[in-house]
């Protein structure tokens, strides 16, 4: 077995954890204000990535702006066309609707651009290793960590220091009560969708810069794991979602790094065993939202 450099493990762990934290946060934002587990978040990531692909060859700033725009517009469109008419319906209906939106966009992509993965390389300058204290670390991973910290910081500022942030936190705690004291449901929900679209675009960019391709199912795997993360973090709690995302990503990387070779193919089994154990002891997640009632 090769000897692993601790700095390398740390950078790997934090960069993967950060990517999942941003994904879980995008999901958590929507869940906290409207109790919707939005499976179509995966397609926000996918479509943002396709926007980068469509504009490859253009200046990278154009591609980035376009991908952020695409994800935000798509997020708003799904809210307006699919979720707003169902806002008074129960959670299960909305969940099924989000599946339908997800499937629809996925099949539409296969139909229009085909299911073959397409190569894309938005940030070639980041694809080189640099040495830090004897460890070979790719520049991209450092950029990923920085981008995650920046996003978390900006989001925290927005939620704590601005009036829309205050409204969102109020809505997350008790939506009906917030409405009664004058918080406008539509603007809060739209803001949540815009922010989740933005986070999806950031995830998409970091993801394609790492993997180098786009594909109609690109967002599915990462968003699925993101869901698990929001659940163990504590559904409805934003810090919980971010921490849960980080924890799951970091755990997956650590298990891969530290498990003996014979057990590594079962990494996922170990990961989800830990998830089950967490939920057995903390059924509401590690950092549950204060407004969420105990499930019976």
């Amino acid at each position: 077995m090769g000897n692993l450099n601790p700095i390398q493990i740390l950078v790997d762990t934090v960069s993967v954890g950060g990517l999942y934290a941003l994904t879980a946060l995008g999901l958590g934002l929507i869940f906290s204000v409207m109790r919707l587990a939005n499976f179509a978040h995966a397609e926000l990531v996918t479509c943002a990535a396709y926007a980068v692909f469509a504009l490859s060859g253009q200046p990278v700033a154009v591609a980035i702006v376009a991908s952020v725009g695409t994800a935000m517009v798509l997020a708003l469109a799904t809210e307006r066309l699919a979720f707003r008419p169902l806002r008074s319906a129960d959670q299960t209906t909305m969940l099924i609707a989000s599946f339908a939106v997800s499937m629809f966009i996925q099949k539409l992509l296969i139909f229009t651009v085909g299911s073959r993965p397409k190569p894309v390389d938005p940030l070639p300058i980041l694809a080189q290793p640099i040495a830090i204290a004897g460890a070979q670390v790719s520049l991209l991973k450092l950029a990923t960590i920085l981008a995650c910290i920046a996003c978390l910081g900006a989001l925290t500022y927005l939620l704590r220091r601005t009036s829309i942030g205050l409204h969102m936190r109020a809505a997350a705690e008790d939506f009906t009560m917030a409405q009664l004291v004058g918080v406008r449901a539509n603007s809060v929900i739209l803001a949540a969708f815009v922010l989740s679209g933005f986070l999806a675009a950031v995830v998409a960019l970091l993801f394609v810069a790492q993997t180098g391709f786009v594909h109609p199912r690109l967002g599915v795997q990462i968003v699925l794991v993101g869901f698990v993360a929001t659940v163990i973090g504590g559904l409805g709690s934003l810090p919980g979602a971010a921490a849960g995302g980080f924890l799951v990503g970091a755990l997956a990387t650590l298990l891969q790094a530290l498990l003996p070779a014979e057990l590594r193919p079962f990494r996922e089994a170990f990961l989800f065993l830990i998830v089950i154990l967490v939920l057995l002891f903390r059924p509401n997640g590690l950092w549950p939202a204060p407004g969420l009632k105990e499930r019976v």
Binding site: M1, G2, I9, V11, I222, A257
Partner: peptide
Amino acid sequence: DPSIDAQVSRITG
């Protein structure tokens, strides 16, 4: 897998 960082680090190590 969105990243195979750990696998790559094992080879570089």
